Amino acid sequence: MKRSLYITAALALSTGLLASSGAMAQGTGTTQAPVRNIVLVHGAWVDGSGWKPVYDILAKDGYHVSVVQEPLTSLDDDVAATKRVLDGQDGPVILVGHSYGGSVITEAGVDSHVMGLVYVAAHAPNVGEDEATLGKGKPSNTSKQPGAIEKTNDGYTYLNPSAFPKDFAADLPLKQAQFEAHSQMPTAAKVFSQPLKAAAWTTKPSWGIVAGSDEIINPDLERWYYERAHSHTTVIPGASHSVYESRPQQVAAVIEDAAKHVQQ
């Protein structure tokens, strides 16, 4: 009988120690697995195909990667397109945005699937702000060039094909940049001036990449956004606005860092 009582007590003590050590592990965050779902959001004038070099790296490393194809017809439409993809995810997500896509993920990122945000040479306005107004405080080189940004009769914008290779993609092969210049997605002018209704970076961790030689967004504006958001910031010297295509290894490394550490 005494032996039975000793065994029962020993089992109870063992169970208690296991439960205690499990709680301690949870408290330190060491048991959290990396986020495996990555959603990529493109910017103005381009489509999601530019993410392919980053997609290939992330997919090879075992991540489930989805690319949003925004219509670029309004901020509301682009946020809705992003949320549609987020709704299809089976777990936590790292949401990544390039350029104007930064505004999109800032608003869409309040979605419950999203654990963290990665800004790639991107805008990150606050609630009530818009990127056009913020851009006037730290203007880009492109915005200072007469005729660089063209506008259609029905209110859509595009980058003059002659300016595209130098301004958007200076570190891409010329033929690739010229192709992208002539396969642009015209973008509604109103997307740049619509104030944001939500700002996920105020409540969720973020990472930011500054493209050191960006002509489309002033690198100083990118730095200001990320400092304000307390983002983990990486500067890539010499990178153009097409940093996600020209430096995919470095961009993917930042995204993977976010996926590994966002829940710690």
Rank of each mutant, 00 (worst) to 15 (best):
Q145A: 09
G147I: 09
S140Q: 12
S74P: 10
K138Y: 12
H64M: 09
G135S: 15
L172I: 02
L174C: 00
D76P: 01
Q69H: 13
K175S: 15
A80T: 12
T133E: 10
H113W: 00
L117G: 06
I105Y: 10
G102H: 09
Y63M: 13
E129Y: 03
S162G: 00
A148W: 10
L134C: 01
L117K: 04
D87F: 01
T82E: 04
Y63P: 12
V65M: 07
N141T: 13
V68M: 09
P173T: 04
V110E: 09
G137V: 06
A148I: 10
A148S: 15
L172M: 13
L72D: 05
S103L: 02
A80V: 01
G101I: 08
S162D: 15
P161D: 04
G101M: 08
G116S: 14
E131T: 12
Q89D: 01
Q69T: 15
H98V: 04
L172K: 08
P165K: 07
P125N: 07
G135M: 04
A81N: 05
Y158F: 15
T73W: 01
V85F: 06
S74H: 09
D111R: 02
E150F: 00
Y119I: 05
V118S: 03
G155F: 05
S74D: 05
V67W: 06
E131K: 00
T73D: 13
K136S: 08
A124F: 02
P161S: 06
F164I: 02
D77S: 14
